[in-house]
Amino acid sequence: MSNSHSKNSLSIDIDETDKRLLRLLQLEARMSITELAERVNLSATPCARRIKRLEDSGIISGYHTQIDAQKLGYPLAIFIAISMDRHTAERFLQFERKIQSFDEVISCSIVTGRSEDYLIKVRVRDMAHYEEFLLHRLNRIEGVAQVHTSFELREVFSRSIV
């Protein structure tokens, strides 16, 4: 996971055409330049230039494929709230580096408004896999003081469109 704040802080003006391009790419990132251009009433070259400008500015930070985790054998989604023992920059940085190395972790956020410091979401095959992850990896990260687990019963929806 990269820190989007330090990646590109270039500020660019976004117009309605840029917004339409971004929405289309979020819905279908594999859409051709020709089709994108058609949908936003541009020719292909100006459309490609706009996309390149959005990429160079960091507004478009990558292209991703959505995967059905259940069909791949990872039916359990778990939210884990984590409290750290000390609130120092070094402790948080150490935790963040380590948590990124675990393939099971699909998101990690620092949160406010609760007693915990982090909220992570993990995907596992079954309870035995979760137990191994929790006891032998997550709880062994230096500084993890407390964890609180909530199992996702059903994802109502997930949206990555801004």
Rank of each mutant, 00 (worst) to 15 (best):
N3S: 10
N3I: 04
N3W: 04
S4N: 10
H5G: 03
H5E: 13
L10C: 08
I12C: 03
I12G: 05
D13G: 09
I14M: 01
D15S: 06
D15I: 06
E16W: 01
L21I: 15
L21N: 00
L22E: 06
Q26Y: 01
E28R: 08
R30G: 09
R30N: 14
S32E: 01
I33R: 08
I33W: 03
E35M: 07
L36D: 00
L36M: 10
A37T: 05
E38T: 12
R39P: 11
V40G: 07
N41T: 12
T45S: 15
P46S: 15
I51M: 14
K52A: 14
R53A: 09
S57H: 05
G58M: 06
I59C: 09
I60L: 05
I60A: 06
S61N: 11
Q66P: 00
K71H: 06
K71G: 08
K71E: 13
G73D: 10
Y74F: 15
P75R: 02
L76H: 06
L76P: 02
A77V: 11
A77H: 10
I78T: 12
A81C: 07
A81V: 07
I82V: 13
I82S: 00
I82Y: 00
S83E: 12
S83T: 12
D85K: 11
H87P: 04
T88V: 01
A89S: 13
L93D: 12
L93I: 15
Q94A: 12
Q94E: 10
F95L: 15
F95K: 01
R97S: 14
I99D: 04
S101D: 11
F102N: 02
D103V: 04
I106L: 01
S107G: 10
S109I: 08
S109H: 14
S109T: 10
I110M: 15
I110A: 15
T112K: 00
G113W: 09
R114G: 13
S115P: 06
S115M: 14
E116I: 10
E116T: 06
L119R: 06
I120A: 02
I120M: 02
V122L: 00
R123T: 04
R125Q: 14
D126F: 03
M127W: 14
M127V: 12
A128P: 00
A128E: 11
A128R: 14
H129M: 08
H129T: 08
H129P: 10
